[in-house]
Structure formats: C-alpha cells, structure tokens
C-alpha cells in the first residue's frame, strides 16, 4: 500500500512542501507504481523539474515509485497551502520503472544536453576563430530566418521561461493551439499541392 506523508515549512514568502511516498507492502508481480500527486497550493507553483523520477503538468506531479521503495517529492509556492497540500490522485501498477522507450524518454530521464540560454555568450565575435563556419552564423535557433519576427520573439520568450522553469499554463495552451493550427495548415498545404 502506497502512503503519502508530507510536511510544510515557510521560508519568508515561500512555502515548501515535502512529500514522501512509501510503499510499505510489496505486491507480487508489481515492479513499480506510477503515482499522480495533486498539489494544492494557491498562487504560482514551483514543481519538480521533469527528470528520471518525475513528470509535471500544471498542478499535478507524476512519479514512479519502485515497489517496496520510498520516493520524495518536493514543491514550493507563494500561496497558502490547503489541507492536505499534497494528495494522491491516482496509483497505477506498472511493470516499467524508468526504462526509456523513445529518444524523448531518454531526454526526459537524463536531461537535455542543450546549455541554458544564459550560458551562451551573447556576442559570438568574442570567440571569433574558435567557432566553425556554419555554426558561427548569427542564427540563434533553427527557424529564425523564416519565422515572422513577432512570432520568433514570442518563441524566444517562451523558451526563456522554459529555461527558467517558469513556464505558465497559458504558454502550454498557446503552444498546443499553435501546434494544432500549424498541423492543420500543413495538411491543407500538402493536400493542395497533391491536387
């Protein structure tokens, strides 16, 4: 049986919530549990970064708990915690622990090797002679030559929020809507060119 214990602590204006998942009774045939935890804190949240153990989506954290094991989950926020601040929403037995099955799983589990924006020198000229000819072009990301400047600027802002771990729910919705509309337009374009 999976139990969730939690403690809360306030540091200035920030509330820290520490949760511990504990599977006390191992069940035969179950290697691990996929556990969804709801976070009940008012205001902006800082959830764990997605990594080997956790995924996050707005105010829900999903983690894989090895059978018979213990796993910690920590969140922080500026609002007032509800009682309880953490709540198990769903528990699903899974035979899989954290074994990646796609390249994206590998990235999720091990973390992207892309350096944060702040780590990239703003003036490539300071490294003149050290960069290779193609890569030293002033392009900052792959599509800036073809994406309209206003859209490009917004993408940069979203990317910066992603790097800073402050991506908003509205960002996700807008990205999803853009993806949907872009896909529809691409499909229409292809259909049109085939006619």
């Amino acid at each position: 049986m999976v139990e969730l214990q939690y403690t809360t602590a306030r540091r200035g204006s920030v509330v820290l919530v520490a949760g511990v998942l504990d599977d006390r009774d191992t069940v035969s045939g179950v290697n691990a549990y996929r556990v969804q935890i709801g976070v009940h804190l008012d205001g902006p949240l800082w959830l764990p970064s997605s990594n080997a153990q956790t995924r996050r989506d707005d105010d829900v954290v999903e983690t894989v708990l090895p059978a018979g094991g213990v796993r910690g989950v920590g969140v922080a926020g500026r609002g007032t915690p509800a009682d309880p601040p953490l709540e198990i929403l769903d528990i699903e037995p899974t035979s899989q622990r954290d074994n990646p099955t796609t390249p994206m799983d590998v990235l999720r589990v091990l973390g992207t090797p892309i350096p944060p924006r702040a780590a990239v020198p703003a003036t490539p000229s300071s490294c003149r002679g050290l960069t290779d000819p193609v890569s030293s072009t002033p392009t900052t990301h792959r599509s800036s030559a073809v994406i309209p400047p206003a859209v490009d600027t917004w993408f940069d802002a979203v990317e910066a929020r992603l790097d800073a771990d402050t991506l908003a729910a509205s960002d996700r919705r807008r990205l999803s809507e853009i993806h949907t509309r872009t896909t529809r337009l691409i499909n229409r374009t292809q259909s049109s060119s085939e006619r």
Partner: peptide, 16 residues
C-alpha cells in the same frame, strides 16, 4: 561542433 549557440539550435533527439 563547438559553438554553444549552434548547439542551442540543435534537436538532440535527432541524434538517434
């Protein structure tokens, strides 16, 4: 490549 700016443009998942 040795350019960090170029690396930021890359999609590492494409390595596979």
């Amino acid at each position: 490549g040795r350019s960090l700016a170029a690396l930021r443009a890359a999609d590492p998942a494409q390595l596979v």
